[in-house]
Write a protein that binds this DNA or RNA. Sequence first.
DNA 1: ATCCTCCCCTAC
DNA 2: TAAGGTAGGGGAGGAT
Length: 980
Amino acid sequence: MSERYAAGPSAGPGECTEYTLGPGDASGVGGARRLPSGPGTAASHAPSDAPEGPVVPEFGDFRTYFGERKRKLAEQAQEHADQAPAQTPIFAGVVFHINGYTQPSHYELKRLLVERGGRFLHYLSKTLVTHIIASNLARSKEKELQNYRVVRPEWVVDCVRANKLLPWHTYKVGGAHRPGVPAVPLGIGELYAMRAMDDECQGDLAIPGPAASGTHVPLDTSSSTSVEVHRPHTLRAAAAVDRFGEGLNRSWVRRNLATEKDFITRYYANSRLHHLSTWKAEMKDYVALLRREYHKGPPPIAAGRRVIMHADFDCFFVSASLLSHPQPSGSPVVVCHAQQQPQPDDYDPDTGVPRLAGGSSQIASCNYAARSFGVKNGMFLGQARQLCPVLATIPYCFEEYKRISRDFYKIVAKIADETQAVSVDEALLDVSDVVEREFQGSAEALAQDIRRRVFNETRCTLSIGIGPNILLARLATAKAKPDGVHALDADAFCGADFRVRELPNVGHVTEECLARSGIHTTGDIRAATLSRLKGICGEKTAMVLHNFSHGTDDRVLESDKLRQAFGADIGWGVRFSSQQDADDFVVRLAGEVCRSMADSQRMGSQVTLKVKKRQEGQGKPAKFLGHGICDSLSKSTSLHQMTNDPARIAAACIDLLHRMDIDPLDIRAVGIQVQRLNSLENSTDIGDMFTKAKERSEGGAGARPGAQCELPSASQLDPSVVDELPEDIQEELRTAYKLVGHAANVPAPRASSESPASSTSEVSIRGTSARSGQRKDSTRRVRPRKLAFQGSKPRPECTKPDLLQAFRKVETLDAVMPSQVDEDVWRHLPTGIRRELARDYIKTKPPRHPGLGQAPTGFTAGAQPEMDGVSEQAPAQLPAQPEYDGPTQLGKYQLANIKQLIGEWTRSSEDGPLAEDIVDIGDYVESLVRGRSLVSASSVLTYLMFCVRDKRGAWAAAADSVMRQANQACVDMYDAQLQI
DNA sequence: ATCCTCCCCTAC
DNA sequence: TAAGGTAGGGGAGGAT
Ligand SMILES: Nc1ccn([C@H]2C[C@H](O)[C@@H](COP(=O)(O)OP(=O)(O)OP(=O)(O)O)O2)c(=O)n1
Ligand SMILES: [Mg+2]
């Protein structure tokens, strides 16, 4: 069956082969997927997580465990400390196990490792051990341990000799080896030689051999139709490997491959789906900001009747693009990239697969005239043109969409009691109170009022569905469209019969599974027993669908959920010709993830690499440069500490990639996700932290053996408290109790802390006593003084001051990437890549005097901030705009919104700035610098300078003070000052 | 019983 | 020409 389009939202009959988005992999092709998902056959589990501490025998025996463990570790440390002067802890984080006979001996290896921060495990715990040391492996062992880091003893010796952690891949035992790569690992001298060569070549040459490629290419080429992998490539500029006639070497195609240096930036600039995801996060952030501006309290506690609205623009992209690209009214129009006129014989009339330009361009949005022909969002243009030959295409106007969206949210967030941003063009509103207070209970009247305001502001039409819960409001919207309002109550819902596909959470797979059991409508669901439903679509989904089928839905709106993951995935244009290509791309992608984390002032301690691999037998994808039908693989690893350091994360990802052992020529998509994030709150209030530190030490003194010590349940732990614990203790908790992931996932205590009695719990962790229930209150009352990193331990520079010192003397490039564990990988990257990666993270000039407020030398057009503020005219008849109350809790918001806040601030007060606001802004910018968000810091400072450019002394002094503070931090960190 | 990893699915 | 991203809910099965 040929790969062909299937519309995302609603695939018509006979369409479905390859799914439009997301995990477009094999199992969906040609029919049956199981719904209750199961693990695939792929990569088993990651061995390297939580590499700390011995196994916990019993959950219950908390105090005994820690006492015992601490004693043992101290012993182990002491044992060798006696014999040797302190060594650089190059093996910190390494937990090793030794297998079989080795040369040097077990004892000697153990000494070398433990002296330098390694931990030894005398048995093989697959979850705790990070490295297995063995000279050779038995056949059976080799298979069993193929997913683990099995290294030769020479690795240890060479690491010690080099006094740093070397990449283990070169010393890998067993597994396939790239032809030409010596089976015997290179000695340290050779590695240095390679590195020097690498640097000289500046990325223009691809160096064969392990130092450049990092790892081998799998031997298995039986499926490959070419031998290009083994071709001795010398010039990187050499032809791309094009096994499937994709025209990868035509110059305009080559310029659009992921191997290009600026690919990610250009790709993201044009990707509608990337914009959609980015905007979703931004709008959630913006709603949080607006709600604060508007003094919206906590969500209404369902006192009486709930009134929920679902507001959604009609064919949003089309409506918005039409504003600047008018078309005859009533004519079918779509938004897509291809703008060429149709060529009648450009596509295969049977399959709709395009032969020429434009056909595999996806339709982001189609208007209602186009829909009457059967055109749908997500469809290939080629196929749509078959349905509707006169289809007109208009281009994307991304900036316009965002502007309209902000206008939209500004209006609805002011009106609604609670607002949940669903997407750039769609929001859920809880209006239970306001509809009574101001519209005498007429939801329709309120809806029409919102629609009128939004249209007047945006010139785009909005439809609104109304219901007693989210489900019914959503379903009502479908009936309201286009340009209308519709209300749906449970009775009306049960009277009508809906197709299961119309329910939330039912996509094409679930629909298919239900259909196979003869369930097509909500009535069919109601008729089915719950247990049968569970067998079809799983425990939870069955429960939800069962409720939905009766028109009930008890979900509540949430506007303040903390983000739990940051990621970047790219599945277009990914065509690699070598392992080096893949490695380079992963590094750049990691940089992208780190950038977005830094923008939000977040860090994480676990990373997952996702790769889509061309499925056996698949050739050229239906979509031009698309991923086609693939198998998905993913693998995760611990980062051992909270970080958003691109070098550290890139290194972990490269490691994962190598361990996945995938032919780089088959990689069609790569994704990186960082999880187990810090909870943000902990780093914003230093006063609070001191209090806790005190509590901690007091508790520690009290909780000696014999003292009462209870095991806290995961949900009782305040994640922000956990975050504050020293990293090694966090890691301990993670390994011992497997709960940090959960603690970190527990939404900040606010949700439950409304009723202190129920949620305030006294927990003790190894003598740590912390209260969780009152935290929010104190955070509220006490103005944040210090933001991220102030007084928080985890940053690597703090723990390795001497190493950093050394780095500072090196070139600036390296000073950005000081983390010890990764320095090696960092240095192995070609200079070109390093430079590229670093450029975005540091823009400094040599140290100068912390001179007087360096006035902005120029204000670039590109840095022009958005000026649409929240304090503009309030819609009439609504409560007056509350007073602007200054920039607080800055850490919570993304860069764009911060700038807006600064704009507001500098315009808010005629009498000059408040001292505490200056401190807050200064602290915020300092935290940006210390969090490596130098681009953000510089951008904020530039904007601040711009805002005060013709203001009087007090403002200039304020800006100067902020600038000094930022520069002081920058000098601390990098021995350099920001260039503004 | 519960956690963790590696998936799968959904939505815009 | 084309720009098929991503966060979050959830399940199966192995490890503990
Ligand atoms: N497969 C998709 C689905 C949506 N979008 C973008 C374009 C849409 O305009 C916007 C909003 O999605 P909607 O599902 O709300 O669809 P529309 O707004 O286009 O149509 P309507 O809401 O009237 O059904 O998201 C996209 O790019 N690709
Ligand atoms: Mg819409």
